[in-house]
Amino acid sequence: MEATAYWTVAPGEGELRRESIAEPGPDQVRVRTLASGLSRGTELLVHRHAVPESVRTLMRCPFQSGDLPGPVKYGYLSVGVVEAGAAHLLGKRVFCLHPHQDFYVVPAAAVTEVPDGVPAERAVLAGTVETAVNALWDGGPRIGDRVAVIGAGMVGLSVAALLRRFPLGRLELIDIDPGKADVAAAIGVPLVAPESAAGDCDLIFEASANADGVATALRLCGDEGEVIELSWFGETRPSLPLGAEFHARRLTLRASQVGRVSPARASRRTTADRLRLALELLRDNAFDALLARAVPFADLPETLRQMDAGRGTTLCQVIGYPQEDACTN
C-alpha cells in the first residue's frame, strides 16, 4: 500500500514522495489524514537546513524519517481519521505527532482522540496549544497579575488566548505589526505597540523570536518580575541587555520548552495528559482566528518556499488533504 509524504531534500527545497506503508498490526492504526499544520518557526529552520548540529538529536520528531539537516521527512501537527487497525479507535478522529503525509501507520498509543466539537483544522493547533499550556505551568500566573505576551505569532497568540481566561489585573499582547490587531481582537486581547505597552509587569511571556522582543520584556518587567522565554533562536546569538538594571532589579529570564512537562507539574502530569488538555482547550472557537485558509497538500512544496521568502500568512498554515483519494494497492 502506498502513501505520499513531504520531504525536505535540500536547503530551501522540498518534494512529495511516494512510499510504501504496511498493513496495521493489532496494536497499530492506519490514519487517513484530514489536515496538518505547518509549525512556522521550527519547520522553516528545517526547510532552510538551519537546525544547529548540537540540537539535531533533540529536535527529532516522533515519526521523522531521515536525519537533520536532510533529506528528512519532518512535521508533528497531523489530524486524521482511523480507517484500520485497533478496533476501539476505528472511525475516530485523532491527533498525531506525524509529518505531512496522506496515510500512515503508527502505534495506537501514538494517537490522541480529538474531542467532539473540535474541527479537524482547529485540532492541528494541539501542538502549539500544548506549548502554551506548558508555558503557563512554567509561569504560574496569579490572580491580579499584570501580564504581557510579546509576539503575536502562533505561540504568543495561543498563550494570550489561554491567559484571557485568568482573573488577571491586566493582559496585553505586544507586537510591532499593527496588522495583527484583528486577530488579537478576535481572541479578545488588546494589541499594543512596544512603545505603548504598560510596564511594571509581574510576568511576561516572550515569543517574538527577536532579540528586541526580549529587551522589551526585560524593560517592561517590574522589580523581581519574571520573563518566560518561549522563542527559539536556532544558530542566532541574540544580544541581550543583561547589564544596566537587570541585576539590581533582580529580574528572572527563564526558558520554557515543550519537550518535557514543566517541573511545576512533572510529578503529576504526563505528556499524554498535557496533549489531551490542549485538545480539550481547543473547544474554544476563538482559536479559529489563528488559522489560515487551508492550502492543498499538493501545493505544500511551493507553500514552504513562499513562506521562506517572507510571503504568505503569519498564522498557522493548514494543509488540506483530498478526501476522495484512497490508498494505492
Rank of each mutant, 00 (worst) to 15 (best):
E2I: 02
A3S: 10
W7K: 03
G14K: 12
I21Q: 10
P24L: 03
P24M: 05
L38P: 07
S39T: 15
E43R: 05
E43W: 00
L45E: 13
R48A: 09
V51F: 02
S54T: 15
R56A: 04
P62N: 03
P69R: 11
G70D: 09
K73Y: 03
Y74C: 09
G80S: 02
G85H: 00
A87N: 12
A87H: 10
L90M: 06
L97T: 04
H98Q: 01
H100P: 02
Q101K: 05
V105Y: 03
A110H: 05
V114H: 01
P115D: 11
V118I: 04
V118H: 15
V118S: 09
T128M: 14
E130W: 06
N134H: 05
L136Y: 07
W137T: 03
D138I: 15
G139C: 07
G144I: 10
I150L: 11
G151P: 01
V159W: 00
R165G: 06
R165W: 12
G169E: 11
R170A: 05
R170S: 09
L171A: 08
I174C: 13
I176V: 04
I176C: 01
K180M: 00
D182R: 14
V183M: 03
A186W: 12
E195L: 00
S196Y: 15
A198V: 13
D200N: 10
S208C: 13
S208F: 13
A209Y: 09
D212W: 00
D212L: 11
T216G: 03
A217L: 06
L218D: 11
L218Q: 15
L218T: 13
R219V: 11
L220I: 05
G222Q: 08
E229Y: 08
S239E: 13
H247F: 14
L251S: 04
L253T: 15
L253V: 12
A255C: 07
R260T: 12
R265A: 13
T270M: 04
T271N: 09
A272W: 14
R276F: 05
A278H: 09
L279E: 08
E280A: 04
D284K: 07
A289N: 12
A289T: 06
V295K: 07
P296S: 13
L300V: 15
P301W: 06
T303I: 13
L304E: 06
L304T: 07
R311K: 11
Q323C: 02
D325A: 12
